[in-house]
């Protein structure tokens, strides 16, 4: 199995000279099994370039499977620009957590309401189907075994553990840490005081995440904030690399990949983040990589070692 990053940015796309090396497009990851089967995680703006590549490679209309962590704009905005959707015979299956709405199709199709986009999802040539996911309820998609895991984000999101070809990785984005703020189904102008029940919920969520990540080879984690930035916005629903390291250490993961970079972080800042956390991770026995657009990572032991 290998994964390729098509968008690594959080919140909104950031063009310009300061993001050329790490990339300015939002969340989208391509997963490939050893046999070449494809799974897409999140449909941020990185999905446009991925779609163009898939279309160039395809000799016939494909079935695409897209896992969504949640439906905030930066995770779905690429969908209307996914060029295979405009090819008749293409089938696109979307898997997502249903939050703050009655049905998935209405929410996801809603981004192509005619006020927002010239062609509605119903009108494009591809056919879509929608599958609601639930934390803890595994799904098999081709050779991929997928386990959704609840995360701490405004109105909810899910991470995914994905097992295939004898190895595993996990996508943990978007999430806040599990101590100071519990995200529920309402707007948070700032941190709220936690009740005992809230603290229990947070503890349970963290335990379930660590159980779900147990022994995973590679973890992609929402590390939007640097620690000093997190202190100013603890209620925004994102984590720091330090908080990600805590989780990965507790779950005995081999490798952590920093992801969902804040739009304000320039390439030069990201170089420093990458160097600092490579060193901090090494002290804790975890290899820390910093994702950039176009990065491809083999998951698990190299084929030669595996045989």
């Amino acid at each position: 199995m290998q994964i390729t990053f098509w968008g690594v940015r959080g919140s909104y796309p950031v063009p310009g000279a300061a993001t050329v090396r790490y990339g300015g497009q939002t969340s989208c990851v391509e997963v490939r099994s050893a046999s070449g089967e494809c799974l897409i995680v999140d449909a941020g703006t990185g999905m446009r370039a991925l779609g163009n590549k898939l279309l160039r490679e395809a000799t016939a209309p494909q079935n695409h499977h897209v896992l969504l962590s949640h439906v905030h704009w930066d995770h779905i905005q690429g969908l209307p620009f996914f060029s295979p959707a405009y090819i008749a015979g293409t089938k696109i299956s979307i898997y997502a957590l249903l939050t703050a709405a009655d049905e998935l199709q209405q929410v996801i199709g809603g981004i192509t309401r005619q006020e927002f986009f010239p062609m509605s999802l119903e009108a494009v040539p591809a056919t879509f189907d929608f599958h609601e996911v639930a934390p803890g309820v595994g799904i098999d998609i081709g050779p991929f075994q997928v386990m959704p895991i609840a995360l701490n984000h405004p109105f909810g999101s899910v991470g995914y553990r994905i097992d295939c070809d004898g190895s595993s990785w996990a996508y943990v984005s978007d999430t806040a840490p599990f101590d100071r703020v519990l995200h529920k189904q309402h707007f948070l102008p700032g941190p709220e005081e936690l009740s005992e029940d809230d603290k229990t919920s947070l503890g349970d969520m963290r335990d379930a995440l660590i159980r779900g990540l147990k022994g995973v080879d590679t973890v992609i984690y929402d590390t939007h904030f640097l620690p000093e930035e997190y202190e100013r916005f603890p209620h925004y629903g994102h984590s720091t690399p330090d908080q990600a390291l805590d989780v990965c250490e507790a779950a005995h993961c081999r490798r952590l990949v920093l992801y969902h970079h804040a739009p304000s972080h320039t390439d030069d800042q990201m170089d420093k983040v990458a160097a600092d956390y490579l060193e901090l991770g090494a002290k804790r026995g975890i290899e820390v990589l910093t994702s950039f657009e176009g990065m491809t990572l083999p998951i698990g032991p190299a084929p030669a070692e595996a045989s």
């Binding site: 939050t99 709405a101 405004p154 109105f155 707007f187 948070l188």
Partner: peptide, 12 residues
């Protein structure tokens, strides 16, 4: 609708 809770944490 752009700021509806499923699309945006601003929620309106």
């Amino acid at each position: 609708n752009q700021l509806a809770p499923h699309y945006s944490p601003l929620n309106g």
